[in-house]
């Protein structure tokens, strides 16, 4: 006879505890990442074991990812002026060391597609939080947290991801995000909302690349984000807005690369003015 009220009390306590944890996580008052890392350390190997394995197709995709990263570097060097090439020779922007990984788990699909995936590399492979993740087609997202065996990646298009970008050959600055900026159009599922920071013109078909973050974290510069497919101007904003179709389809993700290391080990050489 006492069982039902006891079960009710247990349920009430469990709900109250869950609400408390949720509020702590929302407020950021307590760092709950250790709990997530603990779960990743325990369950990551299970996902690595159950997830997709290496086959001929994924080996070829790994090779394509490696080659396209080298190609992107080469294209960047060719496209830039001699002055920019000299800048590229700077140790701070020298090369892109990559760790190749395979997607072993895809998170809750959500109303507009998955926002998170798990890859089979972690801190043991040199992966840290806030590193760029890319594949042969372009930018995939950024590492949200890294466990010893696996890492969780927040995909481009997730509500929490906003990327500073350069648009077109002029390199106009802007922001691309899964959520719409005030005055910018709400993107269709699978696309990004783009808002320029400058009053420069925006054209359909313009290539969008990452602007890059200090130290290359979370985003390395020059990685292809997508192409502008819709342009809207003058709707409550000085600068133009539009929609970007991402270069990467999250539904086909398999082999990806994580940009690792690349922290500056030598001081930037000083230049002399007037020469």
């Amino acid at each position: 006879m006492r069982r039902a009220p006891t079960l009710r009390r247990v349920a009430l306590a469990a709900v109250a505890l869950s609400v408390l944890v949720l509020l702590l996580d929302v407020s950021g008052a307590v760092d709950l990442d250790p709990a997530r890392r603990f779960a990743a350390a325990g369950l990551g190997p299970l996902e690595r074991a159950v997830g997709p394995r290496e086959d001929e197709v994924s080996r070829l995709r790994a090779e394509t990812t490696r080659l396209s990263a080298r190609l992107a570097d080469a294209e960047r060097e060719l496209a830039d002026t001699a002055q920019a090439r000299a800048l590229l020779a700077d140790p701070a922007v020298d090369g892109m060391p990559l760790v190749l990984a395979r997607v072993v788990a895809v998170g809750d699909p959500g109303p507009a597609g998955p926002e998170r995936v798990t890859i089979d590399v972690g801190t043991r492979d040199g992966v840290e939080a806030d590193r760029t993740v890319l594949c042969a087609d372009g930018l995939v997202g950024r590492v949200e947290r890294a466990g010893p065996w696996t890492s969780d990646v927040l995909l481009l298009g997730a509500a929490e991801v906003t990327v500073g970008v350069r648009v077109g050959t002029a390199g106009t600055l802007g922001e691309a995000s899964g959520t719409a900026q005030p005055g910018a159009p709400v993107a269709d599922p699978g696309t990004l909302s783009l808002a320029l920071l400058d009053t420069a013109p925006l054209r359909r078909g313009a290539t969008v690349r990452t602007l890059g973050s200090p130290g290359g974290r979370p985003f390395a510069p020059g990685v292809r984000v997508g192409v502008v497919t819709r342009v809207r101007s003058g709707a409550g904003r000085l600068a133009a807005t539009g929609v970007v179709t991402p270069a990467v389809d999250p539904g086909t993700l398999d082999v990806v690369g994580v940009v690792v290391g690349a922290s500056r080990s030598r001081p930037r050489p000083a230049a002399t003015g007037g020469r």
Binding site: A11, L22, D25
Partner: peptide, 26 residues
């Protein structure tokens, strides 16, 4: 309710998990 709470917590902690701990659980 208890089954949903337990299952939601599993979904919250199994990588890649969700954005906020406890959200799926509730």
């Amino acid at each position: 309710l208890l089954a949903g709470l337990a299952g939601g917590w599993v979904l919250d902690v199994v990588p890649p998990g969700g954005g906020l701990l406890g959200a799926h659980a509730l």
